[in-house]
Write a protein that binds this DNA or RNA. Sequence first.
DNA 1: GCCGTTTTCGGCCCGACTGTTTTCAGTCG
Length: 577
Amino acid sequence: MPIHNNDIARIFEKIADLLEIGDANEFRVRAYRNAARTVNDQPQSVAGMREQGKDLSDLPGIGKDLAGKIGEIIDTGTLEMLEDLEKKIPAELTDLLTLPQLGPKRVATIYKELGISSLDELREAAANQELRKLKGFGKKSEEKIREELGRHTGEEVRTKLSEAQQIVEPLLSYLKQVEGVKQIDVAGSYRRRKETVGDLDILASIKSGSPVMKYFVNYEDVEEVLSQGKTKSTVRLRGGFQVDLRVVPQIAYGAALHYFTGSKEHNVAVRQIGVKKDLKINEYGIFKGKDGSEERIAGRKEEDVFEAVGLDYISPELRENHGEIEAAKNGELPKLITLEDIRGDLHAHTKETDGRSTLEEMVEAARNLGYSFLAITEHSQAVTVAKGLDPKRLRRQIEQIDKINDREHGFRIFKGIEVDILEDGSLDLPDDVLKELDLTVCSVHSKFDLSAEKQTERVIRAMDNPYFNILGHPSGRLINERRPFEIDLEKVMEAARERGCALELNAHPDRLDLTDTHCRMAKEIGVKIVISTDSHYTEELKNMRFGIDQARRGWLEADDVLNTRRTADLLKLLKRN
DNA sequence: GCCGTTTTCGGCCCGACTGTTTTCAGTCG
């Protein structure tokens, strides 16, 4: 069985949890967590890297010891150290850590004093009022734990960015209207435009006496106030979404915005540079000098933070400590793509198949977005549930588009198709109809369960067809719903570059397929990307924004993306020889 | 357990809020 990066990461996380419950050195614990993150963030399989003879201890936070442990996991599927740990501390105890209120210290107490190691036992003990007798616990803690056990599902839920946006926007405009609110922003992973967000961090600066905290905890969607202070409150909204509001003085707003935007790893790295320059950086500003004689030197603007440590301004999307700090130091940050760079959309459906808008409506909507082109790419015949097009119906659509194009000025409808890649790697429509099109989006919609080797072969064989232009939603994943299918995207990207094919970054917020790390891999390999919405009705064309977010997280520039080109240049690029 | 132009030992980011305390530990981000 191949060992995936997240198999390794999970083992390291488990070790970190168990070590922490066992009261190990906190930095040793952190080393395991860092390693888990590093491994998870690799776009390539770490097992594959090792097979190619790469030295894993070159990876950040992986030293000789952890490189050896990774090797052991790859070879044996497990780790002796973990098994030894589990002999001393029940592995189940880590389930208890998933409850808010319970950290390693209290879990250890519960285990030592009451012999409890599972959620069920904990539920019983809470019901029998045994927890409140423990040192460091009381009636309130016990009640909270009981409550949390009631709602506990066992799985971490991260909300899709698009859903978070629907929650944030009304809340933000509500808070903006409160008297004395000067500045307000959403920070955290939402501001970094991560594809999913855990909870929301809102930051505000106010005139003294502003009742913003009171308004916040009384917002109509608040289900429970989890904590409330002068500068920080936390609430849970109906539906379970957790929101923090932090209030900081205007003079520290920039420092706080940087601090709360994160990521944590990025912040730590920036602070470390600060420490070397004898600077203390926290959410209140940037301070020079030793304890006791500190002098604030900046913090009003976010730019101040970067300037103080000698870095170019780093866009929130890049702040993951994935090399952006080094790039900023050397003036080598990418000039990230923006929504304004996009000249059109290359993946859209209409009523003719499974869409909900007509061709004319889609074209009008695209024009209203300021686009110069829109590709109509219906499903092909294999996708029967979507009434996919056979050659005859596709030819009829081609004629229809030609007619509209004849009377359109300054706008071009591209004749396209989203053609299925069949199991044997052939395309679902014959070449003699594909050659009449401006472009093809080629997608896998069936046989998701092939081995990585077979799936990779299937897709690359499809690319051998000279009419293959763009690989649609390359991994097939649906966020929180369907895992990506097994495929070696590195090989696929190399094959695509050699053949002059592009990969789609599907901008639909449920897909966002490619991931940010894969976008970056594409850039490094030198294969071009197309950002498309896969719209099924006019309103969805606006999802381009989420694709741009993801592309920026993947370090993409306008030049890396084909649908930033002028119509004529793009048509030329799409012709393969 | 990692890391290094303060380099092989000794650091490793730092503050708010809560509950249980009676001056602070634990949790969280």
